[in-house]
C-alpha cells in the first residue's frame, strides 16, 4: 500500500495555542511552542515530527480557528 506523506502549515498569528490539534494528532506531529509566542502572546502549534505526518487532517479539522492548512502526497 502506498504510504501517504503529509505536511501542515500553521497560521501562527491566528493560532491561540488551545492545543486541541496536538491532542487530535494520532502521531504526535504537532506540539505547542515552549519558548516562542505569537504577537498576541499565545504559544502556537508547530510541526515537530515532519516525517511522521500522513496528512490525515485531524489537526486541521479540530482547529477552532481554522489555522491549519494540510497537504498530502502519495509516496512514489
Amino acid at each position: 500500500m502506498a504510504k501517504m506523506k503529509g505536511a501542515t502549515i500553521v497560521d501562527i498569528e491566528r493560532c491561540k495555542g488551545c492545543r486541541l490539534c496536538v491532542v487530535a494528532c494520532p502521531l504526535g506531529v504537532l506540539a505547542l511552542t515552549t519558548k516562542a509566542v505569537n504577537l498576541k502572546g499565545y504559544p502556537y502549534a508547530e510541526t515537530v515530527l515532519q516525517d511522521t505526518c500522513t496528512g490525515c487532517t485531524a489537526c486541521a479539522v479540530v482547529c477552532p480557528d481554522g489555522c491549519i492548512t494540510v497537504y498530502r502526497k502519495k509516496e512514489e
Partner: peptide
C-alpha cells in the same frame, strides 16, 4: 495540487 484541508 496536494492541498487536502484549508480554512473554509
Amino acid at each position: 495540487e496536494n492541498l487536502v484541508y484549508r480554512k473554509p
